[in-house]
C-alpha cells in the first residue's frame, strides 16, 4: 500500500470525480428524462420532445460516455498518486 497521506489525497480526489459523475448521471436520466420533462417540452427532437428522447435513448449514451470518462480519469489519478497496479 502507498503511504497514508498519498492514499488519502487519492481517495479525496476519487470522491470528487465520483460526485461530479453522479451529478451528470442524475441530471441526464432522472432530471432531463423525468423531472424536467414538462419544463423542457418546448424543445423538439425528431417529432417528440427532448425529455422523451433522453428517457428513451439519450440517457444511455450519456451513461456510456460517463463510465469510460471515469475510467480514463481514474487511470490518470492512479498514476499521479503512484497507486497504479
Amino acid at each position: 500500500m502507498a503511504d497514508k497521506t498519498s492514499s488519502n489525497a487519492y481517495w479525496a480526489a476519487n470522491i470528487r470525480v465520483i460526485t461530479i459523475s453522479m451529478v451528470i448521471w442524475f441530471v441526464c436520466s432522472f432530471g432531463l428524462g423525468i423531472l424536467l420533462r414538462p419544463a423542457l417540452s418546448g424543445i423538439s427532437v425528431g417529432g417528440a420532445d427532448l425529455g422523451f428522447w433522453f428517457a428513451q435513448n439519450g440517457s444511455i449514451y450519456v451513461f456510456l460516455v460517463l463510465i469510460f470518462a471515469y475510467a480514463a480519469k481514474m487511470n490518470k489519478l492512479d498514476k499521479e498518486h503512484g497507486v497504479e497496479e
Binding site: S21, W25, F52, Q56, N57, S59, I67
Partner: peptide, 19 residues
Amino acid sequence: YNNSVFLMGWTGGYVLLAL
C-alpha cells in the same frame, strides 16, 4: 414513454457499478 423506466433503469445501474 411510461415504460422508459426499463430503458433508463436497466442501463443506469452500470454507472453505479463502475463508480
